[in-house]
Design a protein around this nucleic acid. Structure first.
Lengths: 148, 148
DNA sequence: GCATCAAAGTAAACCCGGTTTACGAATTAG
DNA sequence: CTAATTCGTAAACCGGGTTTACTTTGATGC
């Protein structure tokens, strides 16, 4: 029989939120130190949807599930930082293709590096085996929730 | 040997972020339907730091780890919605005490209810035993990270 | 007791990321 | 060809966060 206080402190939503913030903060700090001081959480979310060889703006937007205006703002900002570039599609002159610039590709490597480091530090804290099964369950939960 | 695409899609930061957002969205939707349509993620974070019998504003702020101005804004908004009230401390006339109003206490019950429902739905998806061990590991990770 | 310093809270200006409403321009369907 | 749809942009706004600066009150040293 849990009291209110206990629920508030220990429910899984709080744990997930706290850890996801910690993860992002930790990763961003590493990225900033390696020459990209402007990095923000929102950037990472967007960049994760841009493929190596470029992606249609509209599909980036659709994958993120936010309004096209919101995504556009972030992408324009990243363009301003020299990470992304936009080209007009040959197929459809309304459409835009989002691509990494050379600097953007460097950014990407740094970012993925940071992510792996933080992930490793988590794994160290928990032990590799336990960490892996935890991760598998998170992934399972994620995929099941997507189906709604 | 993972390729970049694979890392981007499967690192634990993404899983945590996705799930925590899903959890909050799900809980807030339930809360909105039960008579508190104004609820926002930031409210919940703040309210979680206010005890049954009231808490010093300064300790709420300190527990949240954000600037006092930011927290003040949220609290004023919650005051405007009739959820919280502020009183001057008897001990220190600079200080303020944050308390739930009667409506606020109703809100709290609804919110905790919603949280438990969502948590239960997660547990159902994963199986109770697996869910519990996952949660324990998340909590462990959380507490170890706090120590820095 | 007083001067000084620290702490609590507030105010204002600003930034970032998201929304809605509205629109132009290009493509597709009928 | 016309109509409807899709792609992107613009502008106004909101919520939540920051920094800088300030008042009021309390605590400390002397």
């Amino acid at each position: 029989m849990k009291n209110q206080k206990e629920i508030r402190d220990t429910h899984v939503g709080r744990l997930l939120l706290e850890l996801s913030r910690d993860f992002i903060d930790e990763a961003n700090e590493r990225i900033r130190k390696r020459g990209f001081p402007f990095v923000r959480a929102a950037h990472i979310a967007v960049l994760a949807q841009v493929d190596e060889n470029g992606t249609d703006l509209s599909t980036v937007i659709q994958r993120l599930g936010e309004s096209k205006q919101a995504v556009n703002k972030i992408i324009r900002r990243l363009e301003g930082h020299g990470i992304l570039e936009l080209r007009v599609s040959e197929r459809d002159s309304r459409a835009r293709i989002v691509k990494f610039t050379p600097k953007g590709r460097r950014f990407l490597t740094v970012a993925l590096d940071a992510v792996q480091q933080v992930e490793q530090s988590y794994s160290d804290l928990l032990g590799a085996a336990e960490f892996e099964t935890m991760k598998k369950r998170l992934a399972l939960l994620c995929s099941k929730r997507e189906l709604l």
